[in-house]
Design a protein around this nucleic acid. Structure first.
Lengths: 176, 176
DNA sequence: GCACCTATATATAATTG
DNA sequence: TCAATTATATATAGGTG
């Protein structure tokens, strides 16, 4: 019997498949480690094993996050334009949101969403200064209490600054 | 001279390093392809090459996004608890936000933020039904126009349903 | 720089304990 | 199931055009 050589399709035998998965994942991560060290590049990977509760993150949960955040941030160069269409990315997020709405319940989820809200408001300058980064509960209360003011300011800006066109991209065109 | 064997540290010669990078990246992606096919697992990877304008995404920009969204969604099981601390994740986002505030200018960024806002409102049920997924500009107008109503409903919910505690995590404690 | 080549190093399928 | 072994397949460093 020939050793080695397998066809490039799903390994039928389950335990053999798991064995192959363990070995190959190990090999893969080693290669990843090598290429990043040898060539000084940043990289990360995630592998969702069949029976694994947790996906494998490389180089580490934190390292993985860091690289993903770099990617998701899309703020260094305008990678985004060539890599993925922004509109379709937004639409995908929107769809995801709808899928998730029916599942929302936990307090943590509420916190997450409130923070997202804060991101929006801060970016739009509807809230003035960085709030305490630690007290999320306080942040939530603060946002809710201030919704009236925020809405007012939004309405004002909307009334004065509206371009009103739903067509193609032209910047707001206001000087310093 | 001995062929093969290199030490696991940065390759000093630039062109040799780039050659190694190309070869090894190719090999790496092949291995990734193999393990996913042989063992039927979901995986993705991103590699930021030194001189590359775009990072290499595997299996494709779209496939990469899909896996990352699965990960970022954190809604299948409660991976999040073990994998990363939610609070620290939120804080990191918050810091990122502040870093980005000073750079915001493009219309696209405004759209992205508005959509984030919408995610929040939809999840909180402050907007009733899925808006048209295509007309982002319309969505933006709609949100701005409705901020008054939204704020009113928020204030009401806040007044009636407030738990008011800023302490540790305890669920709202409401039965069926 | 790239494509190919070939010697060598490495990864791993199949087997054994 | 896991670890170790070993035969084989594959990846790749260094070389050539």
């Amino acid at each position: 019997m020939v050793r080695g050589k397998v066809k490039l399709r799903l390994i039928a035998d389950e335990s053999a498949r798991r064995a192959a998965f363990r070995k190959r994942t190990k090999g893969l991560l080693k290669k990843l480690d090598e290429v990043t060290k040898l060539c000084d590049v940043e990289a990360c990977a995630i592998i969702y094993g069949q029976n694994e509760a947790q996906p494998t993150l490389w180089p580490s949960p934190e390292g993985f996050q860091a690289v993903i955040h770099r990617f998701m941030g899309m703020s260094e160069v305008d990678r985004s334009k060539k890599m993925l269409n922004l509109e379709s990315y937004l639409q995908e997020r929107l769809i995801k949101t709808h899928e998730q709405i029916n599942r929302l319940s936990s307090e943590n989820e509420e916190k997450r969403l409130t923070l997202i809200m804060y991101e929006y408001l801060a970016a739009q300058r509807f809230v003035e200064k960085p709030m305490d980064l630690v007290d999320l509960d306080g942040l939530i209360r603060l946002l809710h209490q201030n919704m009236g003011n925020i809405a007012r300011r939004m309405a004002m800006l909307n009334a004065t600054g509206t371009q009103g066109e739903a067509s193609s991209s032209h910047p707001p065109n206001q000087s310093g």
